[in-house]
Design a binder for these strands. Structure first.
Length: 482
RNA sequence: GGCGGCGUACCCAAGUGGCUAAGGGAGCAGUCUGCAAAACUGCGAUUCGGCGGUUCAAUCCCGCCCGCCGCCUCCA
């Protein structure tokens, strides 16, 4: 039984999806995407990867997932950036939506089922705001519409704040026109040069939070299963979403609130304001490995920690992740090798481990998507495989092993490569051709037969300098690794 | 000030009221090997930030303290 940590209740709860139409278990999942005013950094990547894994695991569990991830394409920062660059706000938004798609493609994160943009849902937002006004939880002043926070008695239930505390700590400059400092804008009267839509309250643009209420309810229904995002969205964004949505419908909004922890650098949150961020683009460019390999290394790094915990990013951490993955791919390479000896299907222990593995993997993932534990299960299975690998595995057994790793690895986005792809070097131009390697290998074999160790070792070193590792097998043949 | 979280070996990181406190990376030693590499085996926290309390029993529950982080303003 899958359990999920629910920010709303503060507890780890059994997950029951709402829509169980017939035999198909349906899940509606909405995740707050990004505001498109700049390139994404690793923190955004973490969120994207975390919810991608959650989606994949739900699908693995045979849920039919409808995954919605939005773009905030109208916002102060976009407008500001457009002004600075002398472009239209819409161009800025478009630029970074493209960039986001590029980054996600590089990371191996497939698109959500629906990726709506806020500006496509203006009518829905206006409708929602009208309902709120009608219900007296919102009010109009000078073409602005505000949400009357005190009117919604569930306010603070997600972020565990009460309105008194909020007042005490309010550091925001108060808009004098609001009835209460806590009230937040649903609709902003537009200033000259800003994007504008017609509305019952005059020309204006939506506030930040209303879009997610409008889009999630339009695409997933008034009540849906999972709402996700980074921890920093809990307050005020998600708190306000609940206020707006439940204020309008009187029904529960999202049932499970899932929040991922931050990516830190030297124990501090990676963020724009601290300037300690690495864009996804930068990480790929600086990486010593080919793009696709880097993507998997990043995945491995990210899934090696439970999604709610902070994770510290460093070169060392990436290297460690690469080393961890290399160990798996070395095993895959050996599994691909033809078996020299025909007899010896020794592997009773292995068969037991193989049989037990899916349950262990699922137990880990069922426990609030404990990917770190799931990875460790795979590491242990790897050890069980390696223990008998030198003696050779029968073809069917070796294929079964590979299949098991690939299938479960895919849930985390791992082991997607053939060994050849994995070991490809970044600058393929300088690599020695396969034919040359064969030639050198043959020379070395001859030398070894003559017991000319000096010569054999020299060749091995030369190839090593070119990034090609030779491993002599007990039977006299040599394995080539890159 | 309010709210939330974290502190497990050199590094990363699971976890549990009592059974050897997983696993990985790095390191060291051994097996194997002409040597190496790989793989395997062994070693590595008498202890889970500190101090008290509850309990027959606590790293895990409670309290206090120390240290770190986050949110309360835009933020994945």
């Amino acid at each position: 039984m899958l359990k999920i940590s629910n920010t709303l209740t503060g507890k780890k709860e059994p997950f029951r999806s709402r829509g169980t139409a017939g035999k198909i278990k349906k899940v509606g999942m909405y995740v707050c995407g990004i505001t498109v005013y700049d390139r994404c950094h690793l923190g955004h990547a973490r969120s994207a990867v975390v919810f991608d894994v959650i989606r994949r695991y739900l699908e693995y569990k045979k849920y039919k997932v409808r995954y919605v991830k939005n773009f905030t394409d109208v916002d102060d920062k976009i407008i500001l950036r457009a002004h600075k660059e002398g472009r239209l706000w819409i161009e800025v938004a478009e630029t970074y939506i493209q960039a986001y798609h590029e980054d996600m493609a590089r990371l191996g994160v497939p698109p959500a089922d629906v990726e709506p943009r806020a500006t496509e849902y203006i009518p829905e937002m206006i409708g929602l705001i009208q309902t709120l006004i009608k219900k007296k939880v919102a009010y109009v002043i000078d073409g602005n519409v505000y949400y009357r926070v005190k009117q919604f008695n569930g306010y603070g239930k997600l972020s565990k704040r009460d309105t008194e505390d909020l007042l005490a700590g309010a550091r925001v400059e108060v808009d004098e026109r609001k009835e209460d400092p806590l009230d937040f804008a649903l609709w902003k009267a537009s200033k000259p040069g800003e994007p504008t839509w017609e509305s019952p309250w005059g020309p204006g643009r939506p506030g930040w939070h209303i879009e997610c209420s409008a889009m999630s309810m339009a695409l997933l229904g008034q009540t849906f299963d999972i709402h996700g995002g980074g921890k920093d969205l809990i307050f005020p964004h998600h708190e306000n979403e609940i206020a707006q949505s439940e204020g309008a419908t009187g029904k529960p909004f999202a049932r499970y609130w899932v929040h991922n922890g931050f990516v830190n650098v030297n124990q501090e949150k990676m963020s724009k304001s601290l300037g300690n961020f690495f864009t996804i683009q930068e990480i790929f460019e600086k990486s010593p490995w080919p793009e696709a390999v880097t993507a998997e290394v990043l995945r491995y790094f990210l899934v090696s920690t439970q999604y709610r915990s902070p994770i510290d990013f460093s070169d060392e951490a990436l290297k460690s992740a690469k080393a961890g993955l290399d160990n798996f791919y070395r095993m895959f390479q050996k599994l691909d090798e033809p078996v020299a000896t025909a007899s010896l299907p020794r592997g009773r222990k292995l068969r037991v481990a193989l049989k037990a593995f899916p349950k262990r993997f699922e137990a880990a993932m069922d426990d609030d998507f404990n990917t770190a534990l799931a990875v460790s299960e795979m590491q242990q299975l790897r050890a069980a495989v390696n223990a008998v690998l030198d003696q050779g595995l029968s073809r069917p057994l070796s294929q079964a092993v590979q299949k098991l790793f690939r299938k479960h690895g895919a849930v985390l986005g791992l082991f997607s490569f053939s060994i050849g792809q994995w070991t490809r070097t970044k600058e393929t131009g300088t690599a020695i051709s396969a034919a040359d390697v064969e030639q050198r290998l043959k020379e070395r074999d001859d030398a070894r037969h003559r017991k000319d160790w000096a010569r054999a070792d020299a060749i091995r070193e030369q190839l090593a300098d070119a990034g090609i590792i030779l491993e002599d097998r007990p039977d006299g043949t040599t394995r080539i690794r890159r």
